[in-house]
Design a protein around this nucleic acid. Structure first.
Lengths: 109, 109
DNA sequence: AATACATATGAACAATGAATCATATGAAAG
DNA sequence: CTTTCATATGATTCATTGTTCATATGTATT
């Protein structure tokens, strides 16, 4: 059932998710589509970290990391909380981990 | 178990997947990170399609679609076979569908 | 072989986006 | 309140990339 069969263009058009949804999905994947952000996310899968530690871990500047964290936070992939002078970042939810693992799985075949 | 705990930078470095793996994961997500490609992949989830039909379905030029199909094929996300004058494209494997659905699921919350 | 149809490809252009640099904001300690 | 430490931000630069246009390749039909 739900076998791929011959269908008209019109039928297909109606089956597709809304333009806006498709756009949002692409936007989501775009966030994951940068190695710096991927590294940050995988790091946060191991531990909560502050900006400076992530920068040291990835051997990158604090500024570069901060810029990327801003993007990740804007996309609700990470959370942050203040702890004294430092900001502690962590993955926003389990879904992010699922996405990362899915990507890893696909690569490792 | 596997609780997030305080860890040294050195420990964290050892826990991370290889640089190359992380890069490849980012590259994979990057492919999904374009709305044209997402639309193509979702279309192919419904049916096998030739280039012209995809172009018509998405109201885009044949050339633009062909360029994107080339990228998708290079990343092994779609397959193609010749059928007379037309080339029929389809999703490469079930994993691609899983990724798409994962993205859709994350968006629809 | 010549034509028509379907797809692929290369060059060019425009837009996007990541890193850098300089600087601003914010919190805590003296 | 001034200094220091941690982070954020704005502007700039440079590279990447998606689309377009023109054209090439490939297949079938007559």
């Amino acid at each position: 059932m739900d076998e791929k069969q011959a269908r008209s263009i019109e039928e297909l058009q109606e089956m597709q998710p809304d333009e806006e949804i498709l756009y949002d999905i692409a936007e989501l994947f775009k966030i994951f589509g940068d190695s710096t952000r991927i590294k940050i996310l995988f790091a946060l899968e191991s531990a909560e970290l502050c900006v400076g530690d992530i920068a040291e871990l990835l051997s990158m500047t604090q500024s570069a990391i901060s810029h990327q964290l801003r993007i990740l936070k804007g996309s609700h992939l990470v959370r942050s909380r203040r702890e004294g002078k430092t900001m502690v970042y962590s993955l926003a939810d389990a879904h992010v981990k699922t996405m990362l693992d899915q990507g890893l799985e696909h690569i490792e075949e």
